[in-house]
Design a protein around this nucleic acid. Structure first.
Lengths: 105, 105
DNA sequence: TCTTTGTGCAACTATTGAGTTGCACAAACT
DNA sequence: AGTTTGTGCAACTCAATAGTTGCACAAAGA
């Protein structure tokens, strides 16, 4: 995962319906139709969300017979978290450096 | 930070201009006008982004004379990262549990 | 006081994105 | 064969948001 994909990743995670989809997939792989049966949105709406989730690598399609099931890639969340934490730590480092300067050290 | 604020946080982080603002603020606190002088968008556009960033707690306003400077709260990024990592780890835990079952253990 | 400069508010445009319905097609099942 | 079921594609609506311009106002500095 490169820096260029970090912002789309956050954009993907910034939608409530997509979290519902991820949560439902967490209980087991499911197709768009199956998800539509358990969530209050149409199958096509879910299909679009799955495209978004797939583009950022949060979800992976698996053909099972004639249906396409989706599976969550949990490690992508961990990777994103690590990168976000690194950025946050860098900001803290800068702030403490500025503080030190301000305090005369 | 509660769960209810997690999705708006990601939505806030899902915009490129807002990352430009955060990056610029990382070089030092700055006002909306100062930011507009360094970024290719109008002051009002930046002001709107600052409202969004402020609402999710990523940025904090500080009055300096008559101008309002903004400062990044790096720890908010770290907190968000920790929570995201916890979710990712949970997914991995489930997957490995499922694998164990599938493998007969 | 007059001028400058930073903010704030309002109105407006344009684009994106979430959601829908409808139709077509292919793969299973009877 | 015919029927069912899951997918895919297209067009459309609607709401949210990123962006703009314009104006008004308050606070510093000349």
């Amino acid at each position: 995962m490169t820096t260029a994909t970090l912002i789309p990743m956050f954009a993907a995670l910034g939608d409530e319906t997509r979290w519902s989809i991820l949560a439902t997939l967490g209980e087991g792989d499911a197709s768009a139709s199956a998800l539509a049966g358990r969530l209050p949105v149409s199958r096509q709406a879910i299909a679009k969300h799955l495209v978004v989730l797939r583009e950022v690598g949060l979800v992976e399609p698996v053909r099972v017979g004639r249906e396409v099931q989706f599976r969550v890639i949990g490690s992508q969340l961990s990777d994103t978290a690590r990168r976000l934490d690194a950025i946050g730590a860098e900001w803290d480092r800068r702030l403490s450096a500025i503080k030190k300067i301000a305090e005369g050290f």
